[in-house]
Design a protein around this nucleic acid. Structure first.
Lengths: 337, 337
DNA sequence: TTGAAAGCGCTAACAG
DNA sequence: CTGTTAGCGCTTTCAA
């Protein structure tokens, strides 16, 4: 298939230089279109590259360029999970914005474990990324030390409820919880239950709940009941949780879910149990996922700017100085609450 | 906070060696726990590392180790999208299996564009990964050439309907389509419609449909109607597509959807329109997503081994010789068809 | 416009 | 067990 005798080792820049009959530095200049070179040199190099199927070695390139500030073009990203759409969405906004800038993200998944996050940060930093994107504001002391010492820009995404290391891009989960509670209160619901997934991992869900309860307290009331399910959120978990909740406290007139997946499960349960929504019981979610608005009764929820957070985080990489960007959220007045 | 004067530049292995009062190679040996060194050397190095906050530079390490076969510990991955749960699930299986092996995946998103995939492959290969994981079997000639020339193991995930470059891990989308059709036929449905998202991008959906139609043809029948929606799949798209389909052909007795998200939208439409499922009309999806079994009527669908594909792909990285692993799929007899 | 040469930070022989 | 030394493949002065 190939017309030339491939060398046992991979083709190097030196091979290209020899093939093109020019010096190595000339090849380097041509390849990066940096510095000046003759048209003829450019052509010969291009030909040689094509002929040999040369693929630059960025390990070497970045190492050599490191001394003079030429970056690796890498950005290290740590997200807690891939099982919750929120984070792929975040990555989607990020990679979309990075696309064409020549930057490449390297992502690690912490599974909501701060220790693992620290290990990932250390591993990512060893590739000398130009920036570090973390999720949330809660990290181990080691993570913070590593991040600071690395000298690279650090962007913490999603959560703005607290102090950041450097730049923070997100929204207030606490405020989202408060807004949700106020909405339910304004609609007249008073016997409100909470149905959530395991909060020990998802600190942001806890912050929402805290905000929710604070708003209830402000109004002189409180959560009538709560059901916390082990494991990650899902429609199945939401369904089971709702059923448990309503069995224990049939008098509830509204349920606040830890997110839309859980709420969908709750809605499924209402359908099965023949509970009219929202007349008999109201449902409220969080995230504003795709399916929410396609439901026969659009789900009442809070839409979060997930893609935008990713995009803005990407924009911050080149930005100057620490920033604190609150992108807010949108309360969706659906038909379930 | 830090107790020592940080150098302007990042701490290097040479700094650690000086601080520990040993040679550089000793530090290297200690750090990688490779070769032998005295207990005392180990301790002194560990102290120095901690004191200086040393983070190894893997660019340099991998470059130096390259000549002797020490790899980068990187695996390049290209997926078509992050917007469809399928691919994050794939990554989840993959990173889960890679976790603890010291391997780190670097992923690129092609947005279902073969040209972009080629560019990503070239970019990823420039980091000298130890393996390349691609999605599907359809690539540009350039991608194939690059992959072959790189000399690294190539694993193509998800689709087994065709020839692979090297190793293939997945299931037959065509067979999944066939199985779905046979299920509907066996249940007595004869006026079957198809509701799908844009197939120009998602070739695997097209393969499923081809299998589906082939099975219908075998039974001497054919698709009664089809509705193809532009853009990516979603419940909203499925709902709109189903409504268009049923308006055009009210006589349909079953609808095959390009995936579960679309099918969920169809089910929502049935609820809104008051069409009894499956008595008046049956619905059939694809993927076997979480929510499918939590529905009041569990969705009839085909469950795909997404996580397992990722895991097996990871396992193949160390495997020997090309392989062709068909993980199959499971037809879920839900209550909608 | 170009090539020669000196590293980038690390690993891996090779002597000691 | 340990230090010295020679690169890994590339970028970047610096002269020419």
């Amino acid at each position: 298939m190939t017309e030339f005798q491939p060398p046992g080792r991979l083709v190097t820049l030196a091979d290209v230089a020899r093939e093109a009959g020019v010096g190595e530095s000339t090849v380097s200049r041509v390849l990066r279109n940096h510095g000046s070179y003759s048209k003829r040199a450019g052509e010969r190099v291009a030909e040689a590259v094509a002929r040999l199927g040369y693929v630059p070695n960025r390990l070497a390139g970045s190492l050599a360029g490191a001394s003079t500030g030429t970056g690796t073009g890498l950005v290290g990203v740590v997200i807690p999970s891939l099982a919750n759409v929120v984070f792929p969405d975040l990555l989607r906004g990020l990679t979309g914005a990075l696309d064409g800038t020549g930057m490449q993200s390297v992502v690690g998944v912490s599974e909501y474990d701060a220790e693992r996050e620290e290990a990932l940060v250390a591993a990512l930093l060893s590739w000398r990324p130009e920036a570090l994107l973390l999720t949330g504001l809660e990290h181990t002391a080691g993570t913070v030390t590593l991040a600071r010492a690395s000298g690279v820009r650090v962007v913490e995404m999603i959560d703005t409820d607290g102090e950041g290391i450097d730049t923070v891009v997100g929204f207030s989960n606490r405020a989202a919880g408060q807004a949700s509670a106020r909405h339910l209160l304004a609609r007249g619901y008073r016997r409100i239950g909470y149905c959530g997934h395991d909060p020990s991992a998802d600190l942001r869900a806890s912050k929402r709940l805290a905000g929710f309860e604070a708003a209830l307290a402000e109004a002189g009331t409180a959560l009538a009941e709560r059901e916390i399910r082990p494991g990650r959120s899902s429609a199945a978990s939401g369904r089971a949780g709702f059923e448990a909740l309503i069995a224990r406290r049939p008098g509830l007139d509204a349920v606040y879910f830890s997110n839309d997946d859980m709420a969908l499960g709750g809605w499924f349960a209402c359908l099965s149990l023949g509970l009219a929504v929202p007349e008999r019981i109201a449902l409220f979610g969080f995230n504003g996922l795709d399916f929410a608005e396609a439901m026969p009764q659009p789900l009442s929820t809070v839409r979060t700017p997930r893609l935008e957070i990713g995009r803005r985080a990407a924009a911050c990489l080149t930005g100057t100085g620490p920033a604190r960007i609150d992108l807010g959220f949108t309360l969706i007045e659906g038909a379930t609450a």
